[in-house]
Nucleic acid binder design. Sequence first.
DNA 1: GTCTATACCAGGATAGAC
DNA 2: GTCTATCCTGGTATAGAC
Lengths: 232, 232
Amino acid sequence: MEKDLKFDAFKDVLSLTMEDMSRELFQGNRETIKIKKEGVAVKNLVKILNAALNLSNEKGFAAMSLRDLSAAAGLSMGALYTYFTSKEELLHMIQRQSNVVAQVLLDQIKGIDNPRMKLRRVIQAHLYLSEVMQQWFYFAYMEAKNLAKEEQKKAIESELLTEKILIDIMKEGQEKGVFKAANIELTGAVIKAMLQDWYLKRWKYARRKVTVEKYAAFLVDLIESYLTAPQS
Amino acid sequence: MEKDLKFDAFKDVLSLTMEDMSRELFQGNRETIKIKKEGVAVKNLVKILNAALNLSNEKGFAAMSLRDLSAAAGLSMGALYTYFTSKEELLHMIQRQSNVVAQVLLDQIKGIDNPRMKLRRVIQAHLYLSEVMQQWFYFAYMEAKNLAKEEQKKAIESELLTEKILIDIMKEGQEKGVFKAANIELTGAVIKAMLQDWYLKRWKYARRKVTVEKYAAFLVDLIESYLTAPQS
DNA sequence: GTCTATACCAGGATAGAC
DNA sequence: GTCTATCCTGGTATAGAC
């Protein structure tokens, strides 16, 4: 039987450092980025993205001026504009890059048969992923309202997709008789809410010295206990 | 034995319409508001607050210009500035007003003895309150990061206070042997997260036609089932 | 108490030197 | 490829007429 995911193992498998993200972002935006040498571009994108995520997660993207960003990234205004053509485009680049990551979840449950184990895995993978990519997840959540209508729709679909994954697993579990009858749509919604809380309220869990693995174990326990309890 | 809270009953007891909120806000800010006649002031504050909450919940307070606000409220820029002395002060006025409401929770559990019922009541009261005051809760959550350091601290304390109420009830329940041994600190945190999801993701629950009472019943069931399940 | 007109500045954006 | 200097829009804020 498959084993639980460990955070360290998970982290090592994925390359999601700021440099990896910058390189991917560079390759996905070759037309809009005026810099041609990958080495130069990636080096500066690391600085820009770090600064942009820090500043806007602290006080909001709208409240971050490009002069702030320029100072924090150690690049002139002119240099910044060789990486994007407007502030809004910077927003969209970051947002798109955050989305790319989402399908990691699906990879994590490939080839697993037992619905109970599948559910554990998805919860663990989601939490571990958001632990590594905390800034990106927080940004995507908080700045979604600033996107254009069309991109907002994508964000919503992405949220509902995660829920659908959860719901499908629970449905399968019900059919196989492992899980009790319960409102799995609502269960999916609140699981999602609890997963999001992990990256939205970092300060709280850090202060209480709760690790991701501990939080993951707690969530799994809570949900399994609910889904396998005698009918109320 | 005490009965469950019904939403309609709850709603009728509290006077929390926009006019009530405006009147309270007026009385709490008599020095900064230049208008003296309560009737005039309240009438305009209703317009201002409605417009401000709508606009900033849609695209963020920072992104809402005072020209936008002026147009949406149907008042000139000059008139706006007789109600606050700066945009930042408007933010603080709204934020403070949102906080006032929080202690309604404590009122709801006065005189109840049974921890299980207490827990139900707090969950119901929190959800019903946030249902009536949706815009205010959403604003307070999303704009917390734009506050001055000191007010941010208050927002954090307020969040932790809600959790403490939950945790204390659960502790009492454990001592009385009604609830099993469980990590009640983490349980408190995720209950809070699920309560918040109700006003943060209105669109989701509206789309699925889930009412507050239904959501409340689900949450209570989930939590009670966890706290009374056999030890895992 | 409310409006219009205007001051003033911060912020986004770019041209052109290096 | 990067910087400095500058443009100019649109934002906050206020003075003064009504």
